[in-house]
């Protein structure tokens, strides 16, 4: 393992900020793995730390394939992470909206450039990303429709779902989008947590990456093949929203099978405890996402459900 400082930023009153990369193997640039780009993506750094420890062992035992190399960047934004802030510590800009970056531009453009210039020539790019809303997902590989995405390849992670959605204008400055445009086959992996550690879902993400690398002859690793992934399109999912605001009392969790009419959650009055609204499933299906806030605004997408068509026995 070799540790390298990929980018360093001076600060007038703080320690310098260093973005570090951890290299394994040698030869062609096979896969680059990026953890946190935001300061609250604790789980994403945690997953990288677990991967680095596995890669270190694989390297020692000669199980990284000849001529293949791996690089892991656990954290692009240590300055924000150390003060508990999601976006950039001074101007609140989002580094994951600054790619491919610009070496003569503003601070976060320079950070993005410092990272991108080191990661843009890898064959595969894997990013552990997070959603802007608090909540939980079924672990999945997320892809944007860019014309370059390869959903069949994404199934090699063996996660239950590969989720594909239309790219929006603001997506064009993310790491994932720019990786794709520059020829890297890029995947974002979503797990159950962001600003806390969920060990089970971290292990699932680690296994998914190892599974993928094993299938593509980058490492030699005995592992469970995982799921036969199903591709779902963003437009297939059914949004379930609430009309009233209040406490969000969740009854159905992620991966629950629900029937049309099942109660997914209740919204209760935060002062009197009265039930203001029962949130019912409009379809038979599987819960792909649920919001995570204890108190909820009205008109919030609380659940996203994969419709299954036929009624199924609820599993709670």
């Amino acid at each position: 393992m070799e540790e390298k400082v990929l980018f360093e930023l001076g600060s007038v009153h703080r320690d310098n900020m260093r973005v570090k990369g951890y290299y394994f193997g040698s030869g062609e640039h096979s896969v680059c793995i990026v953890g946190a780009t935001r300061g609250n993506e604790i789980q994403q750094v945690y997953i990288c730390s677990k991967l680095i420890s596995v890669f270190e062992q694989l390297e020692i035992t000669g199980k990284i394939r000849e001529g293949k190399s791996i690089m892991v960047i656990p954290c692009v934004n240590p300055h924000s992470m150390n003060i508990g802030k999601r976006f950039w510590s001074t101007d609140n800009t989002d580094i994951n909206r600054m790619f491919p970056g610009y070496c003569l531009g503003e601070t976060t453009q320079r950070i993005a450039d410092g990272v991108f210039s080191n990661v843009s020539d890898y064959e595969y790019g894997i990013q552990f990303a997070s959603f802007y809303m608090q909540g939980s997902f079924i672990p999945h590989v997320r892809m944007m429709k860019t014309g370059f995405e390869d959903t069949e390849l994404a199934k090699d992670f063996g996660l239950p779902y590969v989720y594909r959605r239309k790219a929006k204008p603001y997506d064009t400055t993310t790491l994932n989008y720019n990786w794709q445009i520059w020829g890297t086959k890029a995947f974002s992996i979503y797990t159950n947590a962001t600003d806390s550690i969920d060990d089970d879902s971290a292990s699932e993400a680690v296994n998914a990456v190892l599974n993928f690398l094993n299938k593509h002859d980058i490492i030699e690793y005995d592992c469970h093949e995982g799921y036969i992934s199903r591709l779902i399109e963003g437009s297939e999912l059914v949004n379930v929203k609430n009309e009233t605001a209040g406490f969000f009392i969740r009854r159905a969790g992620v991966n629950s099978r629900v029937r049309k009419g099942d109660i997914l959650a209740e919204i209760t009055d935060p002062y009197t405890g009265r039930i203001l609204e029962e949130i019912k499933s409009p379809v038979n299906g599987i819960v792909f996402f649920h919001a995570g806030q204890p108190v909820i605004y009205s008109n919030t997408p609380l659940y996203r459900i994969i419709p299954t068509g036929v009624p199924s026995v609820p599993v709670r």
Binding site: T244, A245, G246, F247, P270, Y271, V295, Y297, S298, N299
Partner: peptide, 11 residues
Amino acid sequence: SVGLPIDESLM
């Protein structure tokens, strides 16, 4: 207008 959880509306 959007209802906020604790006795307030965002307008």
